[in-house]
Computed example of a mutant assay.
Amino acid sequence: MTPDRLITLLHRHWAQTLAELDADARARLLRLVTALGDAVGRGPTLRAVRDVGRMLNRLPDHHPVAVALNDTVRYAGPDTGRDTVVDRARLVDLLGLLAGPPPTAEEVLDTTRQRLLRAPARGADAAPGAVTDAAADDLIRLHHPELGSRYPEFQFTPGTDEPRPVVREVNRLLLAGEDPWGAADWWLGDNEWLDGAPAALLDVVPDDLVLAAARALVEED
């Protein structure tokens, strides 16, 4: 795993990561992330990345960072020199968060919802027919405190108001009407089966594979 990829994962799931760690583990992670920020050169940087990765492998199996790091041998393979670039500005942010108290469950949930609301979305007025015709579980509807109902853009066939058939089918599996935030997090978060965010892989991987990944989640539950 490259430094930039690791830092992106940490930033995206930082609140959830801290919530899983006790005080000792947080202190150790602080030291390891500091070492990553101080590392100079390809070898020391990649070693620092692997040290942070080993630490995060202690997270529960379902944790999104743990899922991405669950194969340390694969991620420890050769990298090109350009992959050793470290986004030190992001690391400074992470170090500041590590020094504070662990987030509450409410703060973790709020962080997740803010991330999901930043994804491109449209209001009900932008696709009135599709929204009216859709069943409760067909489309994800998120509530924005200022903009009201928001429908994540990935749900629609580009250039149209028509919901993608595979999205409607997956949303029904995920019970999007009952848990729209959970369904949106599945679509917009990293997925082990697909090696990426399902929403970003629409039209890239076969619809059957996206559907299989969703069914695997439901069957696990």
Score class of each variant (00 low, 15 high):
P145E: 00
T160L: 03
Q114N: 12
N191K: 09
V205P: 01
Q155Y: 02
G182L: 06
H143F: 15
L98W: 04
R82T: 13
W193P: 00
L174Y: 01
V65L: 00
I140L: 05
A136P: 06
L98K: 06
R122F: 13
L10G: 00
E169L: 13
A183N: 00
T80C: 07
A25E: 07
R115E: 02
A15H: 13
D83F: 03
I7Y: 04
L139Q: 07
L175Q: 15
V166C: 08
G189I: 10
P120C: 06
L9T: 09
V204W: 04
R172T: 10
Q114R: 14
P165Y: 09
Q155W: 04
P145L: 05
E106P: 03
A183F: 02
P101K: 05
L21A: 01
M1P: 00
A68G: 06
D87W: 07
A134C: 15
P120L: 02
P145Q: 02
R31G: 03
R118T: 14
L30A: 10
R122S: 11
D24W: 00
L56C: 00
R90S: 12
V52H: 01
D51K: 12
G129N: 05
D125M: 08
E169A: 15
A197M: 01
F154T: 10
V52I: 05
V204R: 14
R122P: 02
L209Q: 14
H144F: 04
A216Q: 14
P198H: 09
T104G: 06
V85S: 15
L32Y: 12
P128G: 12
